[in-house]
Design a protein around this nucleic acid. Structure first.
Length: 353
DNA sequence: CACGCGTGGAG
DNA sequence: TCTCCAAGCGT
């Protein structure tokens, strides 16, 4: 087994040193900061997470602060970033680190892998960047770069392919494994793009099998297509006599679990029926607009209704002013759209779409 | 292994 | 408008 690093490693590392983006979490090897950034980076582009990262580490500067935080506050910091289970797993892991690891983040791949929310990619990223462990961090960028370098038509959607690539790269890590991993990802993010890659600017183009054979545009191979089902939904803004709106905490399982939102049900259930059964509201509903919200695997086609001047005595649901909903509650984007529409349409006739 | 799980940018 | 895709993980 050849366990020396690849011949192109040096060129890649030199390119990385010169071209890497100045990201805030690159200013430190603090495993806590790197951990947070890597969790946020899962399935998320770096530019998107930057403001979230800065706010998060300011509010929760160390693992003890994170472990002691209220989950609602944590979710508020995650609001709009998506994949909210990441925040919950981060919380669970923080508590485990405090109670079982004396507040120290595990310093190796194997132990990191045991923590909730940390899989093969994230464990490898933290272990290599913070603790110099020679283990490959294989994300979507690396799968693409490696497929092209080796002219491999293996399906990168397969778990087996990911394992093989991680194994192959891990056998050949240089003495700067963290830099190597980051360099591979940075190359994928800046040069070896999914479409129209900048091959002429690539520091390892002379070693690229796909470029040599003209297959760059065919790689990587990903067979599985996402199939998205459409659900017809009905949502309702329930307004009381003081102009406050009814919000509900979503169930603790499933889509957007643990966050807050306005009453919403599938159309065949009927929002009027739901409100009457749950809150005994009998005031008339008025359709005020239609919109669509697209998740990874579901599309909601939403009919938005409103009920005005609802009488309630406090025990029938949580009523909060729109301003305080925005400032104090973690509201997913689908519901924020409704609130924006509500705020603007009270002054002028804005189409809801 | 297949599927559930958000959102925003780019072509 | 539609599709893909992004520093993936849990079940």
């Amino acid at each position: 087994m050849n366990t020396t690093s690849f011949s192109w490693t040096k060129s890649l590392l030199q390119w990385f040193e010169k071209n890497k983006r100045p990201l805030p979490f690159r200013l430190t090897k603090d495993p806590y900061a790197v951990w947070i950034s890597e969790i946020m980076a899962q399935q998320t582009q770096i530019d998107t997470l930057l403001p979230y990262y800065n706010r998060f580490v300011e509010s929760f500067p160390h693992v003890q602060a994170l472990a002691a935080a209220e989950e609602d506050l944590l979710l508020k910091h995650w609001e709009g970033l998506g994949y909210y289970n990441r925040a919950k797993n981060l919380h669970r892991a923080a508590k485990i680190i405090v109670t079982e690891w004396h507040g120290f983040i595990p310093d190796n791949y194997k132990d990191l892998l045991k923590l909730p929310g940390i899989g093969p990619y994230t464990a490898a990223a933290i272990a290599s960047i913070c603790f110099n462990e020679k283990i490959a961090a294989v994300d979507g960028n690396v799968l693409r770069v490696f497929s092209r370098l080796t002219n491999s038509f293996d399906d990168i959607g397969e778990q087996a392919t990911k394992r093989q690539i991680q194994h192959a790269l891990s056998q050949c890590m240089p003495d700067e494994p963290g830099d190597f991993n980051e360099a591979m990802m940075e190359l994928g993010a800046l040069i070896c793009l999914p479409t129209n890659p900048y091959c002429l600017l690539c520091p390892i183009r002379e070693h690229c099998s796909a470029l040599e054979t003209g297959h760059v545009h065919l790689l990587p191979v990903k067979k599985k297509k996402i199939k998205r089902k459409t659900l017809a939904m009905e949502a309702c803004l329930v307004e009381d006599t003081k102009g406050q709106l009814l919000i509900e905490k979503r169930p603790d399982k499933g889509l957007l679990s643990g966050l807050w939102g306005f009453p919403i049900v599938e159309k065949n259930q009927g929002i009027g029926n739901y409100l009457q059964k749950t809150y005994k509201y009998t005031e008339p509903l008025c359709l005020i607009g239609k919109t669509k919200h697209v998740f990874t695997h579901i599309t909601w086609e939403i009919d938005l209704y409103i009920i005005k001047q609802v009488q309630h005595d406090g025990d029938k649901g949580v009523f909060i002013s729109p301003k305080n909903i925005l400032s104090d509650f973690a509201l997913p984007t689908a519901f924020k759209k409704m609130l924006r529409f509500y705020n603007s349409s009270s002054r002028k006739n804005t189409p809801y779409k």
